[in-house]
C-alpha cells in the first residue's frame, strides 16, 4: 500500500466527475462521445496508479483492456450513429 499513488488516483477522479457536465450539456452528440473517451483515458491512468498503490499488477491488464476498447465505441459511433446526411460533400472551406 502506498498512499501517494492512491492520493494521485483520488486527484484524477474529479477530472472524471467534472467531465460529466459535458455529457449532460454537450450540444452535439460527438461532444458527449468525446467525454466518454476522456473517461477511458482517465480510467486507464487511475487504474495504473491504483495498480501501483494497491500493489496488484493484475490491474495493468484491465488498463490494457480499457485502452484496447477505447477506440471501439468511438468508431462504432462514427460509423453507425453520427453519419452525414446522405451524400458526402467534398467542398470544404479554405481549400
Amino acid at each position: 500500500m502506498s498512499w501517494m499513488h492512491i492520493f494521485f488516483a483520488l486527484v484524477l477522479l474529479p477530472a472524471i466527475g467534472v467531465g460529466m457536465i459535458r455529457i449532460l450539456r454537450g450540444p452535439t452528440a460527438a461532444d458527449r462521445m468525446m467525454t466518454a473517451q476522456l473517461f477511458g483515458t482517465c480510467g486507464v491512468a487511475i487504474l495504473l496508479l491504483l495498480s501501483a498503490g494497491m500493489g496488484n499488477p493484475v490491474l495493468l491488464d484491465i488498463a490494457l483492456v480499457f485502452s484496447l476498447l477505447a477506440a471501439l465505441a468511438t468508431m462504432t459511433f462514427i460509423r453507425r450513429t453520427w453519419r452525414g446526411s446522405g451524400k458526402k460533400k467534398h467542398e470544404y472551406p479554405l481549400q
Binding site: 483515458t41 490494457l64 477506440a71 468508431m75
Partner: peptide, 13 residues
C-alpha cells in the same frame, strides 16, 4: 495503444 486510439478517433470525429 491509447496514443493510437485517441489520435485515430480524434481524426475520425
Amino acid at each position: 495503444l491509447v496514443l493510437i486510439a485517441s489520435s485515430a478517433s480524434c481524426h475520425l470525429i
